[in-house]
Nucleic acid binder design. Structure first.
Lengths: 204, 204
DNA sequence: TGATTGTTTGACCAATTGGTCAGAAACACG
DNA sequence: CGTGTTTCTGACCAATTGGTCAAACAATCA
């Protein structure tokens, strides 16, 4: 996207500081619900200083999203067509769940964007995301045709992995409220449950 | 909540018009991302006229959410402890999926609120929602203990129904983009896939 | 009909929004 | 040191925000 630029030490530090603060704010309030003042305050910088590093509010958001999309697709990229089918899919589910645990802000930023109709990211959805999904769905279809896993709908199988794992980041507040605030980490039980679920689904 | 009030014909009509328009806007942009002007325009009314029927922007939002919470929980309320366990759970999943299909705006409004930390709805989450979930989770646990369905985690089972079904409303844009815009309705295939998934999960 | 009540609006307000700009301050480097 | 560049800020701007209000308009009903 952005052509590589020579950046000073200060530039690098402040840009990452700003992006981190913006991730906090955007992931909670969405694009239109977030203000530059909020981001500036969260970053510990002045508002004009933000605009010294980024040309506009939208530029910050776009930068965040385009950085995100890459790492977002990594777990799926690592699905190995030559691996053992059921283990590969289970491992993919685990990687996605791990992302929900370790990067909940990124998950919420993404969810916010999709909820709003993906106005600033539709290109990547119809491009990178769709291409990769098509490719991996074909792999899974191949496994099903070969009788290595139980037949079902490859695309909806992927959707189910996305929704089930991202749920624990996006709806974290609800999950914890329902489970009761016993300080429990819901993730271990979630992983165990999802392992059972997908093992049963995939077993012929 | 609001005490019953005598309302004229015009009041009834305009209040529902406003709430419907507000649902459109809030469900897309979230609370802070939506403006009274947007809602007024969508409702075909002037901004001061909105504020003749509702005291504030927040009042509209709260009214929407409290109306929503009731119908939102209906599908789970109908889970019959005396029914055939597997059929009951499958029917619940189908009711939830039907809600995603018929009321996607409500689903997105809810998702937006939870994403933002549920600031205006936490009471209902920790109250009505948690109570009902506790009750039904106990029912499911009973079924598992009696060996009528395969043992797994009742709460995460409910979470999985929520996330899988709501995904088709909240991430509708992504689902359609990935499946390709062949004008297909993704719901029939989704229902079939989810039936398979839960049938396998619940079978002993 | 007229008087009362219910409905609608244009004009207005203070606060907040994203963004600009000239210059001050801090830094880099010969 | 000094000079040029990078970094930072206070003051400011036009546009938009949620909300008010008096007055105009419409509905109702005696």
């Amino acid at each position: 996207m952005a052509e590589p630029q020579t950046r000073t030490r200060i530039q690098k530090k402040n840009r990452t500081t700003i992006l981190d603060a913006a991730l906090d704010v955007f992931s909670q309030f969405g694009f239109r619900g977030s203000t530059l003042d909020q981001i500036a305050k969260a970053a510990g910088l002045s508002k004009p200083n933000l605009l010294y590093y980024f040309p506009s509010k939208e530029a910050i958001h776009v930068e965040l999203l385009s950085c995100l999309m890459d790492t977002w697709l990594d777990p799926l990229r690592d699905l190995d067509p030559n691996g053992e089918p059921r283990a590969e899919i289970l491992a993919y589910m685990r990687r996605k769940l791990e992302m929900s645990r370790n990067y909940p802000r990124e998950s919420r930023l993404f969810a916010n964007e999709i909820l709003q109709g993906a106005p600033r990211i539709m290109g990547a959805i119809e491009g990178e995301l769709k291409d990769l999904t098509d490719e991996k769905a074909a792999v899974i279809q191949g496994w099903m045709d070969a009788g290595k896993i139980a037949p079902s709908h490859p695309y909806h199988l992927l959707f189910s992995i996305w929704s089930l794992t991202q749920h624990y980041a996006d709806f974290d507040v609800q999950v914890r409220a329902v489970l009761g605030n016993e300080g429990d980490d819901p993730f271990p039980a979630a992983e165990q449950y999802l392992e059972t679920l997908f093992t049963k689904l995939l077993t012929v």
